[in-house]
Design a protein around this nucleic acid. Structure first.
Lengths: 105, 105
DNA sequence: TAAGTATTTAACTAATAGGTTAATTATATC
DNA sequence: GATATAATTAACCTATTAGTTAAATACTTA
């Protein structure tokens, strides 16, 4: 449980969860949304993975990250983010991204 | 929210919350239950205070700590602790302590 | 096969966390 | 007022965290 709470104790990581709330995203797509180096972001992703909050699926040269929807804490964060000033817009952006992904299939 | 998750990311601190789940305890009574110096424990208490999870009331030379019951995360932890192997016995001990406190009043 | 793109790993640095002991503050008691 | 007790603060040490840039790995495509 330490790992889970530790993972959730970072604004960056909770934002990542918000971005993933409505759609899957590649490491690069996530990274584009933060002013931070790719290696730094990659570390955040691995922390979220180790906590079991997200999973990564390699497809060719891309790694597609998605929420582990069965995870109680991922769901809790998804709920809490609605009450967080920064959370809502990120969730909306996640929904927009999902729409675009579906229409381009 | 960072402070809250950070506070919850420590087993020691979650145990403190479990001990406080059924009764108030002084800093010393809490400290007695951990193999750690009093100053170290005092720091844990102040981290929990800063996160708004517990409050301390000074009565004479003692400081009585208690859960902030209105805090969503304190309640969440109280709930989660039931499913945690270490959590249950601590909550039971907390209930025992509460019983003794009441009978000695 | 060479060159380009996506991602992670390695090596490093600065700041933070979590512990220690010693000192301080505040209250109680003789 | 001197002494003991409860708790916190101060000063210090070590380990971990969060970032950086450079290098490595894996895949795609000309």
């Amino acid at each position: 449980m330490n790992d889970t709470f530790q993972a959730l104790s970072s604004t960056v990581r909770r934002k990542i969860l918000a971005y993933l709330s409505k759609t899957d995203l590649t490491a690069g797509e996530i990274s584009d949304r933060f002013e931070m180096s790719k290696p730094a972001l990659s570390k955040h992703l691995s922390i979220l993975m180790n906590a079991g909050l997200i999973q990564g699926d390699k497809k060719g040269q891309f790694v597609h990250y998605s929420l582990v929807k069965e995870n109680l804490f991922a769901n809790m964060n998804d709920f809490l983010v609605n009450f967080c000033p920064q959370g809502r817009p990120l969730k909306m952006e996640s929904a927009e991204l999902a729409k675009n992904k579906n229409s381009s299939e």
